[in-house]
C-alpha cells in the first residue's frame, strides 16, 4: 500500500457514496446512465471472485463495499426510482463496449483459467464502463453539479492509480501491463471532462456543454 493507491481507493469509494447520496436525497436518477452502473456491477463481480481469498481486512472490506455499493446503485435506478430514469437518453450501444472486452479477456490474459480471464475482462470493461454516462452528458448537454463531482472522483481514481503504478515500478519493480494500459485508456477518456470540470464546475457554474 502507498499513498497514491490509498488516495485512489478513497476517491473511488467517495464517488460511489456521492452517487448513492445524490440518488437518495433527490429521489431521482435523472441524468445517470443505468448502462454504466450495470457495467460497474459486472466489473466488480467478475474481478472480486477471489473475495474469499484473504489478502487483508482492507482488501476484503473494499471489495465488499464496491460490490454492495454498485449493486445498491443499480437497484435504486432500476427499481426504486425507475420512474425518474431517462431511458431515452441512455442510448449508447453497450455491446460495442462489452464484446471487445470479452475478446481481450480471451486473447491476452496472464494465464488461461476462468478467474484470470474474468479478471482481465473486468479490467478492460472498467476502462470503458463510463462511456454510456459520458455519452448521456454529451447528449443532454449538461450534468448536475453532484453528478460532475461523482465523475471527477471516479476519473481521479484511475489517474491516481497511474501514480501508484509508477511508484510500484520504481520501489517494488512491480509491473502489471494489463492494468497499466487499460488504466491509462480509462484516465484519458476523462480528459475532456476534467477540463470542463476545472474550468466550469469549480468556478461554481453548472456543467453545460456548448451546443
Amino acid at each position: 500500500m502507498n499513498i497514491f493507491r490509498l488516495a485512489a481507493d478513497i476517491s473511488h469509494a467517495v464517488a460511489i457514496v456521492l452517487l448513492l447520496y445524490k440518488i437518495w436525497t433527490s429521489r431521482s436518477c435523472a441524468g445517470l446512465s443505468l448502462k454504466s452502473q450495470s457495467l460497474y456491477v459486472a466489473v466488480f463481480v467478475s474481478r472480486y471472485l477471489d473475495i474469499f481469498r484473504f489478502v487483508s481486512f482492507y482488501n476484503t472490506f473494499m471489495k465488499l463495499f464496491f460490490i454492495i455499493g454498485s449493486s445498491a446503485t443499480v437497484y435504486l435506478m432500476a427499481f426504486k426510482f425507475k420512474h425518474t430514469y431517462q431511458k431515452e437518453n441512455d442510448s449508447f450501444p453497450v455491446l460495442y463496449l462489452i464484446l471487445p472486452c470479452i475478446a481481450m479477456a480471451f486473447v491476452l490474459p496472464y494465464e488461461y483459467n476462468p478467474v484470470e480471464i474474468l479478471w482481465t475482462f473486468s479490467i478492460w470493461q472498467e476502462s470503458v464502463a463510463i462511456f454510456p454516462q459520458l455519452f448521456m452528458v454529451q447528449k443532454t448537454g449538461e450534468a448536475e453539479s453532484i453528478t460532475s463531482h461523482y465523475l471527477f472522483a471516479l476519473g481521479s481514481y484511475r489517474g491516481l492509480y497511474i501514480l501508484n503504478w509508477i511508484y510500484r515500478y520504481v520501489v517494488e519493480d512491480h509491473v502489471d501491463w494489463i492494468s497499466i494500459v487499460a488504466g491509462v485508456i480509462q484516465t484519458v477518456l476523462y480528459c475532456d471532462f476534467f477540463y470542463l470540470y476545472i474550468t466550469r464546475v469549480i468556478k461554481g457554474r453548472k456543467l453545460d456543454l456548448p451546443a
Binding site: 481507493d9 482488501n59 473494499m62 496472464y110 494465464e111 483459467n113 484470470e116 492509480y161 512491480h174
Partner: peptide, 10 residues
C-alpha cells in the same frame, strides 16, 4: 510475477 496472487490491487 503475473499470477493471480499478484492481483493485490483493487
Amino acid at each position: 510475477g503475473h499470477s493471480h496472487d499478484s492481483h493485490d490491487e483493487l
